[in-house]
Write a protein that binds this DNA or RNA. Structure first.
Lengths: 106, 106
DNA sequence: TTAACATATGAACAGACGTTCAGATGTTGT
DNA sequence: ACAACATCTGAACGTCTGTTCATATGTTAA
């Protein structure tokens, strides 16, 4: 904790980067897209059906998630197969969920 | 992980609550206010000086942080002394920092 | 090549959000 | 009571952001 704080102070814009990181998770649509990828990679249409979001919107948000390194994808014929970039993504969501649950939010 | 997903699905608006939770952290100003409280409780003016944000803005953001149960406060004379609500708050920020650091962001 | 499907992209709009300003409320000391 | 300080609040403004629509790009099959 103390060491982390030290490093945060070092970089001028570290807080900015952390805030940007949180911001990506701070949208219901993006969060449900990430959540839809928890147990299996999916194409854009499948994500759209699973989340109820329009294909266009899903594509837009996936671009943001890509640029934030939260998802990665692979072209397979007509489809783009997306999956969570690494285990940290689910970690973040589970951590937040754990804290909300711990405070009796659910 | 699987059990958590199960519980998320149970509540219709669970993803909304998690998104709202993330959203609060997703602002540079609020994040620096929280960060300023990492090692000691502070009054509004001290937070303002430490973060470089105007007292008015600090007060506005503190209200949001209060409503999100991220900070608690206590009146002491003319001053309102704020502190982090519990250790989960620092946990969240440190978790995010750890993930960004792990991916070589800093 | 075409047609049909899947995905991506840009423009445009509406609503949300951060910030500032002015003023209100609360507290202490005189 | 008053003045001075600390904090809070509401309105107003500009900017950012999520969403939709139309269209473009890419891929497969005929």
């Amino acid at each position: 904790m103390k060491s982390i704080k030290h490093r945060i102070i070092k970089e001028e814009d570290t807080l900015n980067k952390i805030a940007e990181f949180f911001k990506v998770f701070g949208d219901r649509g993006r969060l449900s897209i990430l959540y839809s990828l928890f147990d299996e990679p999916l194409c854009v249409n499948s994500i759209s059906e699973k989340t109820g979001l329009s294909p266009s919107l899903v594509s837009h948000q996936l671009r943001i998630l890509r640029q934030s390194h939260l998802v990665k994808y692979e072209r397979q014929g007509k489809h783009s197969i997306y999956e969570l970039d690494d285990e940290h993504v689910a970690d973040m969501i589970e951590t937040a969920f754990g804290h909300l649950k711990h405070r009796g939010e659910f």
